[in-house]
C-alpha cells in the first residue's frame, strides 16, 4: 500500500485516502485491526453498504415502521446532489493524476459508465 502511494508521489494517494469520510475512502481498511472480522479479510464491505442492508432488514421485519423513517430518508435523498459537491471538488487534489494520462482515463471512464448502464439494463430486460 505505502509503496503504491509513494509510486504516484506527491502524496496524491494519501490525499485520497485521507479525504472524505473514512468509511468511503479508507483503502487501508483491510489492514486495520478495527475492521469488522465478520467477513474474510479479502472481502471489504464498507459500513454504508452494511447499513443499507441492516436498515432494509429492520424495515422488512417490521421492527422499524416505514412511516417513521420515510420523511427523513426522502429529505436527505433529495439533498444527495448537494452532498456530492465536496466529492467532486476533491478532484482538485488529484488534477495531476489526471494530467499524465488524463484524457485517456477520462475517455475510458466515460465509456465504462455508459457501457455499464446499457449492458446491465439490457441484460435485465432480457432476463425478465
Amino acid at each position: 500500500m505505502a509503496a503504491t502511494n509513494h509510486a504516484i508521489g506527491d502524496g496524491r494517494g494519501t490525499a485520497h485516502t485521507n479525504s472524505g469520510p473514512e468509511e468511503y475512502l479508507r483503502c487501508d481498511s483491510i489492514h486495520s485491526k478495527s475492521h469488522l472480522t465478520l467477513f474474510p479479510t479479502a472481502l471489504t464491505v464498507p459500513t454504508p453498504v452494511i447499513d443499507i442492508v441492516l436498515l432494509y432488514i429492520l424495515l422488512a421485519t417490521h421492527i422499524l415502521k416505514r412511516r417513521n423513517v420515510e420523511k427523513f430518508a426522502d429529505f436527505i435523498i433529495s439533498l444527495t446532489a448537494f452532498l456530492f459537491v465536496p466529492d467532486g471538488v476533491q478532484l482538485a487534489a488529484s488534477l495531476d493524476i489526471l494530467g499524465a494520462q488524463g484524457l485517456q482515463i477520462t475517455a475510458v471512464v466515460l465509456i465504462a459508465t455508459i457501457v455499464r448502464l446499457v449492458l446491465v439494463s439490457y441484460t435485465a430486460v432480457g432476463l425478465i
Binding site: 459500513t47 432494509y56 423513517v69 426522502d74
Partner: peptide, 22 residues
C-alpha cells in the same frame, strides 16, 4: 468544510434502504 458535508453522505447513502423497501 468539505469533510463536514461529506460526512452526511453516510446517512444519505443508508437512506436508500427506504426506496429499496418501498
Amino acid at each position: 468544510g468539505g469533510d463536514i458535508i461529506f460526512w452526511f453522505l453516510n446517512p444519505a447513502t443508508i437512506a436508500f434502504a427506504v426506496p429499496l423497501y418501498r
